[in-house]
Design a protein around this nucleic acid. Structure first.
Length: 699
DNA sequence: GTAGGGTTAG
């Protein structure tokens, strides 16, 4: 499987840095942080980092109202003296309490107590209390707290040493105040390796990998400083960029510096190699780990899973168990996801049970994966149960269930859940809208769809993307509003995408508008001349219209480019035994019975109005294979994103129902399949079938 | 002398 970022593999870091004009530091976005006044020990400021930016900082620095001291001092000599004596005692007690609360991880309470310290004179506050307050802010992720603590230090003339400077920097980074953190960092009178590491890690955390690299290269070239922590962070940045070549360079540096045995570095390397497309290198690093930790195992298992090697990933998980390595919530999240991909309900149930047994039944990520897993199997009530029992739901959890409902014909529930989500104050994102618009589309709720579509920008401040447009086009198309759908494409604030034209094309096929259909198909054909699906769609349309000359020209073009249809694959699990099927392959021992069953199902769905399209698929297709190809043609459409369907299709005949919009009967079919303990899934991403080699039998 | 690093979900 080609990884999405593998196209960058041959690009050097230099090219990335040169070509990137993006910077996290937009001069307009600067705001007052107090840093220039904060570092007061008189050391010369460094100008080696973006002098231009520093001058911008000076130009644009202006105090923000909420950054001012909360209680200005009344500094008459007499009052100060009296208060100082009284409050020192008071402050000491208070400081002590704050430190104790932070030690007990009661961060919010500690910050509340800090209120009293703010009101009074804080000259007696020591580094130790500030250190605790830093932990409180980080623990509570409180931006307000960061500002209060920083101001308190400044107002009370506290001069931080190197240690406290780094702690303050860390506090800003961990509370997602990257702009402030960067200003603090640039203005620091003195930095050490820890300061650099904190700043670089902060940039990596927010995904600004290029800027992290810039900083790292500056550090490396000017100071020749870096340790295992720096490398672990930079390897993570490389993984984020998907750059194998710089990743290898970092690996070399790690070896030369003798920090390759560091567990953090090893785990980061495994992850980096996995994400950059080299699972062999990941395995090599894993094998070389002197001590294989939980994170190490998690990372290599996730790596195999990422590459589609689900069985290998699962056997590694069993190896991990045999090695008595403790498992954590990461392990179970990864394993549940693997089971979802494997399409094995048996494995999934075991993973779910293990998760509960090991005490991770409350974990948000693992539970969200379970929701996704059960939804994809159509076990939507199980998904709902998991969701309802979750003590802490985040946006992804909501999205998973809404999408689950939408993809299984439970549009009403999806829209209802979307409304509930808004009522509970959860802010939707573009994924939420994709799911809920898809639900509206399935239900034929064009008015509600429009309302939701418009609300994206007007209420939720989210610009609809091409996929949202495609959803709306599908919705309008199903209602037969082809002109409206075409107008939406033409009025889109960006170039229409293939998905948008494909949605229109589907609508044209449903409503037999061949002229608009051919227009859409030709657009598609022009947009992706190397995409096989576009040839097929156009070919089908020409054939349906009786335009034989045009059809012949498409076939000619197809042959010239050497494109051909690879066999489609599906496999099913029946009573814990998996069976794979490819187009035209009849080597299975029960081929005859299977075909009889499929024919029976076809007859059954035909009773509900399904009419197979006339297909003149491709040249050189054996007549005997045509029957098989018929079953796979919808799947092909799904694979190429021509229809809005879930990744894993319970039964491809269900797709036929979706084509004629008979969700009710599609669901009836799904439950019928479930009763027989049959699970069918799309095999197109599975490694056994890479390079078109399909085989039945063992698997 | 303190502080900074790695893996998961839609």
């Amino acid at each position: 499987m080609e990884l999405p970022l593998s196209r960058y593999q041959n690009i050097s870091l230099g090219q990335i840095l040169d070509s990137s004009s993006s910077s996290a530091f937009d001069s307009k976005a600067f705001f007052f942080s107090g840093s220039q006044l904060y570092w007061t020990n008189g050391r010369k400021r460094s100008t080696s980092f973006s002098p231009l930016r520093c001058s911008l900082v000076k130009q644009t620095l202006r105090p923000k109202p909420n950054y001012k001291p909360s209680k200005p001092h009344e500094d008459t000599e007499e009052k100060t003296n009296i208060k100082h004596t009284k409050e020192n005692k008071f402050s000491f007690g208070l400081c002590d309490q704050i430190e104790k609360l932070v030690f007990k991880r009661r961060y919010q309470e500690a910050l509340e107590l800090f209120d009293f310290l703010e009101i009074e004179d804080g000259h007696g506050v020591t580094s130790s209390t500030y250190d605790s307050l830093v932990n409180a802010c980080i623990g509570a992720k409180s931006i307000k707290g960061v500002k209060r603590v920083t101001n308190h230090m400044f107002n009370n003339g506290f001069v931080p040493d190197q240690y406290m400077s780094n702690r303050v920097l860390l506090m800003h980074v961990r509370c997602n105040m990257l702009m402030d953190a960067r200003i603090l960092f640039d203005e620091m009178p003195q930095r050490n390796l820890v300061s650099w590491n904190i700043m670089i890690a902060g940039l990596v955390d927010v995904g600004d990998y290029v800027e992290a690299y810039r900083l790292f290269l500056t550090m490396w070239s000017e100071y020749s400083e870096a340790d295992s922590r720096t490398f672990a962070t930079m390897i993570r940045a490389t993984a984020g960029l998907g750059l194998l070549y710089p990743g290898r360079q970092l690996h070399s540096c790690v070896l030369k510096m003798g920090v390759s045995d560091d567990i953090f570095v090893a785990c980061a390397l495994i992850d980096m190699y996995s994400k950059c497309g080299s699972i062999e290198d990941a395995q090599f690093v894993f094998d070389a780990m002197p001590q294989k930790t939980t994170v190490g195992w998690n990372t290599i298992i996730a790596g195999y899973a990422l590459h589609g090697y689900s069985e290998e990933a699962l056997s590694l998980y069993y190896e991990m168990q045999d090695a008595n390595v403790p498992m954590d919530h990461f392990t179970f999240s990864i394993v549940v996801r693997i089971c979802a991909r494997l399409g094995s309900l048996e494995h999934a149930k075991q993973a779910h049970a293990s998760l509960v047994r090991h005490g991770f039944s409350l974990d948000t990520v693992a539970n969200t994966t379970l929701i996704d897993l059960y939804s994809k199997w159509g076990r939507i009530e199980d998904a709902r149960n998991v969701f309802d029992r979750m003590p802490c739901k985040n946006l992804i959890s909501w999205n998973a269930l809404i999408a689950g409902y939408a993809n299984h014909g439970r549009g009403e529930d999806a829209v209802e859940l979307f409304d509930k989500m808004l009522c509970e104050g959860m802010r939707p994102n573009h994924v939420t809208f994709l799911a809920v618009l898809s639900a509206c589309s399935n239900l034929g709720l064009s008015d509600r769809g429009w309302d939701i579509f418009y609300s994206m920008d007007s209420i939720h401040n989210i610009n609809p993307r091409a996929m949202h447009y495609a959803c709306m086009i599908e919705l309008l198309g199903r209602e037969g509003l082809l002109d409206e759908a075409l107008a939406l494409i033409r009025n889109a604030p960006f170039e229409p995408t293939m998905n948008m034209w494909a949605a229109l094309l589907t609508a044209c096929r449903i409503h037999k508008n061949l002229e608009l259909g051919v227009f859409a198909a030709e657009k598609l054909y022009g947009m992706g001349p190397e995409k096989l699906s576009n040839y097929i769609v156009l070919l089908n349309i020409y054939n349906n219209m009786g335009k034989m000359e045009e059809a012949a020209s498409v076939i000619h073009n197809l042959k010239q480019k050497g494109l051909r249809l690879l066999p489609s694959c599906t496999w099913i699990e029946i009573k814990k035994q998996s069976h794979a099927f490819c187009s035209g392959d009849k080597s299975h021992a029960q081929t005859k019975e299977i075909y009889q069953y499929l024919d029976g199902l076809l007859v059954e769905i035909s009773k509900h109005g399904y009419v197979p399209e006339n297909r003149y698929l491709l040249p050189d297709v054996d007549e005997k294979e045509e029957h098989m190809l018929l079953y796979h043609s919808e799947k092909l459409a799904v694979t190429f994103g021509l229809m809005n369907t879930p990744d894993y299709v319970p039964l491809q005949l269900v797709q036929s129902h979706r084509i004629c919009h008979d969700c009710h009967n599609a669901l009836k079919l799904i439950s019928k399949v479930k009763d027989r303990e049959i699970v069918v899934r799309d095999a197109s991403k599975f490694h056994h079938f890479k390079n078109g080699s399909c085989s039945c039998g063992d698997y």
